[in-house]
């Protein structure tokens, strides 16, 4: 089992006292002939912050996209809060999920994308209220209250009436984070949220994510190449390579005493090897 108590961890209580909110079991994913994920077993606990690191092409994004239902696993199961995501239980048998089932389970998951993906034809406020109104069934008033609260949290409330095209990349990403938060997911996925940003705006977005990580009990899965950020925010680091989780543990351990050679090699590039 993974040890998640760590001096650096932001979460004080022992996370693993609870049942996992997300369980990947023997998850495999192939695109055509290339197997990208080769059997992932992974638990994420309520309120836990896990950083996923690993070389390019190792399957990190794919792993997140399976949970967001943007990609379908080739085999294996994912459970979210006790329910199968890609399967339905019919008379004790697992059958492939239909859109209705996906819709129900997906509500617990939110995602922030590398390229923000704001809706360009809507104001910032509308970007944040459209889904709560249409998908959650909130009243317009409720949705706007929630949206304004979240926009305030990410420091974008003054821009509520503007359109995405008039914002910088960092500002757009902050709005995208607010937009995802308004849905109040139990699990939030961040797929390299700062790697499409100008260097000047990376800091503001990382700061927003840190703030969110400190508050609330939302579980977070952070795919990132920002090692010091991962170290600071995460309760646990998962090192991905060649489609499997090669090594995981609390940041202090993973960054200072990497066990596998692969991870040692990988960390050298970031000057975070234990020997440095």
């Amino acid at each position: 089992m993974v040890e998640t108590q760590d001096a650096n961890a932001l979460t004080a209580y022992n996370i693993q006292d609870k049942d996992p909110i997300v369980k990947y079991r023997e998850i495999k994913k192939a695109f055509g002939d290339t197997e990208v994920l080769k059997g992932i077993d992974f638990d994420l606990y309520p309120g836990e912050r896990v950083a996923i690191i690993g070389p390019s092409g190792s399957g990190k994004t794919t792993m997140a996209r399976l949970l967001m239902t943007l990609e379908k696993p080739t085999s294996g199961t994912i459970e979210v809060d006790g329910r199968y995501l890609w399967h339905k239980e019919v008379k004790g048998q697992l059958v492939p999920a239909d859109e209705k089932h996906l819709h129900e389970v997906r509500g617990d998951i939110g995602m922030v994308f590398q390229h923000f993906n704001l809706f360009p034809h809507m104001t910032i406020l509308k970007n944040c209220t459209e889904a709560p109104v249409k998908a959650l069934g909130l009243s317009k008033k409720e949705a706007e209250e929630r949206a304004k609260e979240m926009l305030d949290k990410v420091g974008m409330l003054e821009k509520a009436k503007d359109y995405p095209a008039s914002l910088s990349g960092g500002q757009q990403q902050r709005v995208a984070i607010a937009r995802a938060l308004v849905m109040r997911p139990k699990v939030m996925l961040f797929d390299e949220p700062t790697s499409a940003l100008d260097p000047e705006t990376v800091g503001e977005v990382l700061q927003v994510i840190k703030d969110i990580a400190k508050q609330g009990d939302m579980a977070m899965m952070l795919i990132t190449h920002e090692m010091s950020f991962a170290h600071e925010v995460a309760d646990r680091i998962c090192f991905f390579d060649e489609g499997i989780i090669q090594e995981q543990g609390p940041p202090s351990q993973v960054f200072t005493q990497p066990k596998t050679e692969r991870l040692q090699e990988f960390l050298k590039r970031f000057h975070m090897n234990g020997s440095s």
Binding site: G110, N117, F119, H121, A135, A180, M183
Partner: peptide
């Protein structure tokens, strides 16, 4: 493609996805 994906991530139903996100754009 990212617009479709964002719409899925925000849990729009297929019909809402077309009406609110895809067709207007």
């Amino acid at each position: 493609q990212g617009q479709w994906e964002a719409a899925t991530a925000l849990n729009f139903s297929p019909v809402q996805k077309w009406k609110s996100i895809i067709l207007p754009q």
